[in-house]
Nucleic acid binder design. Structure first.
Length: 330
DNA sequence: AATTCATGCAACCGCGCATTG
DNA sequence: TCAATGCGCGGTTGCATGAAT
């Protein structure tokens, strides 16, 4: 035996609210308040709606000072931080963001912010599966997809920070490249965000390794918000896999991806709880990317992904928008 | 131009908690 | 103490819209 319904389902209207209903609701509340009883509210206000529906409409859209539209970087940062600490307690998170509703934040998280995080560790193979039109193009003599060249000298990692779809906006990706989880799981782990390899607006980034510290950012760093250039460099040993991730707009030049690390096994795409790619030698001595798991991110994993950097502020967003620098031990 | 697909968002639903009698 | 009731929250759904094919 379930609980009694909160209202007469047969006699209440469902679906989108009309302007007339909105006006009625707003007018009544401005005159008399909510009356402290949402269940009884519709009858008093002359609305054929469920009380819960009235409450939701008022709280999320009609009450004063509701803020709609784009979330600022600061708001992103707060959401990210709070999610790391308390999880999906949207009402609490909303309490920290004046004018924002829990529903708004929840939707924003589910549709955009989470994707940004997931984009950080999505894999090239995954991209190619879902975007076969993205032909691989090697930047050198190699013709095989995801191939790379190695050398013993300095390393350059060229990539881009723009998304390849409109939903993956750049979010200081250079800072988010690495997570401690990937670091912990294997030496020299490096995550390449989705937007790092496919995009319509190409950029170069270099990652530096100095004294076993991978350094992101620096003088040539780019701002995440404007998509300007960021340069990072990795020294020690160079491997390069030609990225044909340029897509229809980018082509060979834009899609070039170079990457180098100094170890034999490279756990570049170690998504937290998701698919891993490990570059390793095969029997014929060629290095290959190996799928390790499916790409399935849960909230816990995303939380780990966030928290693994120690601070969400450091993870996603640049405090001062002028320099991005992340140092990691490998 | 038509169709399909992807995305974002408003709204709904069910459950747990708090309050009240 | 306990049952009834209402509130609030988080997860999910469905629709509208725009992009891609």
């Amino acid at each position: 035996m379930g609980r009694a319904p909160c209202c007469d389902k047969a006699n209440v209207k469902k679906g989108p609210w009309s302007p007339e209903e909105d006006a009625k609701l707003k007018e009544y509340i401005e005159k008399y308040g909510t009356g402290g009883n949402w269940i009884a509210f519709p009858q008093k206000a002359g609305l054929r709606r469920c009380g819960k529906s009235c409450r939701l409409r008022w709280l999320n859209y009609l009450r004063p000072n509701i803020k709609h539209g784009e979330f600022s970087d600061e708001e992103d940062r707060i959401i990210c931080n709070l999610f790391t600490n308390i999880g999906s307690r949207w009402s609490i998170i909303a309490a920290q963001l004046p004018g924002r509703t829990d529903n708004d934040i929840k939707n924003y998280w589910n549709t955009k912010l989470k994707k940004k995080l997931m984009g950080i560790s999505i894999l090239p193979s995954q991209l190619l599966k879902s975007h076969p039109s993205l032909l691989l193009q090697t930047s050198s003599t190699s013709s095989s997809p995801l191939s790379y060249r190695g050398s013993n000298s300095s390393t350059t990692f060229y990539t881009q920070t723009r998304s390849f779809t409109g939903t993956l906006e750049p979010i200081s990706f250079s800072q988010s490249l690495m997570s401690s989880s990937s670091i912990n799981s294997a030496p020299s782990a490096l995550q390449i965000p989705q937007e790092s390899v496919v995009g319509r607006h190409m950029q170069q980034q270099h990652y530096q390794v100095k004294d076993n510290i991978l350094m992101f950012g620096g003088e040539a760093s780019c701002s995440s918000s404007d998509g300007s250039c960021s340069n990072h460099q990795i020294t020690e040993r160079e491997y390069e896999y030609g990225g044909a991730y340029g897509g229809r707009n980018g082509g060979a030049t834009n899609g070039e991806v170079k990457l180098q690390m100094g170890l034999q096994n490279y756990n570049f795409f170690n998504g937290v709880g998701g698919e891993q790619k490990i570059m390793q030698n095969n029997s014929s001595g060629n290095r290959m990317w190996e799928d390790q798991a499916g790409l399935d991110y849960g909230l816990e994993e995303i939380k780990q992904l966030i928290s693994s950097t120690g601070s969400c502020n450091n993870f996603l967003f640049d405090e001062n928008k002028t320099e991005e620098k992340v140092m990691m031990y490998y």
